[in-house]
């Protein structure tokens, strides 16, 4: 699959899924939160291919740093996008992509031209990675809280003597829960390529692992969402992520078996015959 095709599927899929979470607000329920997680899966799937593209030039610092810069800049773009409310909440997902693209392009320019990395795809790749980071955080945030609007992300309630009062410390941003999503994304975006690195790396296996990383992150976020969502909505998210994870994990084993030189169970070291 060409990189542009992966980019197209990933970006469009992620944005559509982000809008599907808005059904929560339209219908006044919380069951559609899991679409945020699916958006993150799409983004991570695309980001893995971008990292592969970028790292084929050799960065000198290993693959994980690319994940760190992606999420480090992505989370900044994402929080700003959720805050902008002049155009209504429906603009947020697109705005998130636009802000992240600008921020990523500037950081890419800094890395490529000022720091003098001289890698032809650097600016585009870092811009893509920044979008991936921002959309991943936005998606998992929507999954954890059921919404992607800033005022809801900072709203938390605590009960004092049976009376619910506003307590920002119990909110998604005030309680630091975004840190979990941040780290989940930072590892998930680079793990698939980092783990499958080697001369026999194949795209379908790497991308399957990318989806698996996305679903395991969804799984964690679905458990964390007990703090914000009703139990039935949590259960829906939990089941969706569990099914997705089991499917991709099994599929990944099958693909690894296909690519492996041999698949041995409790056998001794098979010494190479001297040529």
């Amino acid at each position: 699959m060409s990189h542009n095709k992966v980019l197209g599927i990933g970006l469009i899929g992620a944005i559509i899924c982000m809008y599907l979470t808005y059904l929560n607000t339209l219908l006044g329920v919380q069951y559609f939160s899991f679409f945020g997680g699916i958006a993150a899966v799409f983004a991570l799937w695309w980001g893995t291919d971008t990292i592969k593209h970028l790292c084929s030039y050799g960065l000198g610092t290993g693959v994980p740093s690319a994940g760190m810069i992606a999420l480090g800049s992505g989370v900044i773009a994402m929080i700003l996008a959720t805050k902008v409310n002049t155009f209504g909440p429906l603009v947020i997902p697109v705005l998130c992509v636009v802000i992240a693209a600008i921020l990523g392009a500037i950081i890419g320019y800094v890395a490529n031209n000022i720091v003098n990395m001289n890698i032809p795809v650097m600016v585009v790749s870092i811009a893509e990675l920044c979008i991936v980071g921002a959309v991943t955080v936005l998606g998992l945030t929507a999954m954890a809280t059921g919404t992607f609007v800033f005022t809801d992300l900072i709203a938390g309630t605590a009960t004092f003597f049976g009376i619910p009062v506003t307590n920002y410390a119990a909110s998604y941003l005030g309680g630091g829960a975004i840190a979990v999503v941040f780290m989940l994304g930072a590892i998930a975006v680079q793990h698939a390529f980092n783990a499958c690195l080697g001369p026999n790396e194949s795209q379908d296996r790497t991308l399957m692992l990318a989806a698996e990383c996305g679903f395991i992150s969804m799984f964690c976020v679905s458990i964390m969402s007990v703090a914000f969502l009703s139990l039935s909505a949590v259960l829906v998210s939990f089941l969706v992520s569990l099914i997705g994870w089991v499917y991709t994990y099994k599929k990944y084993f099958v693909l690894s078996k296909r690519d492996a030189f041999m698949w041995l169970d409790a056998k001794p070291i098979r010494e190479k015959e001297e040529a």
Binding site: L197, P199, N200, R205, T206, S256, D259
Partner: peptide, 9 residues
């Protein structure tokens, strides 16, 4: 699995 399968060569 990933690293080892990629060393098939």
């Amino acid at each position: 699995l990933g690293r080892t399968a990629s060393l098939a060569k």
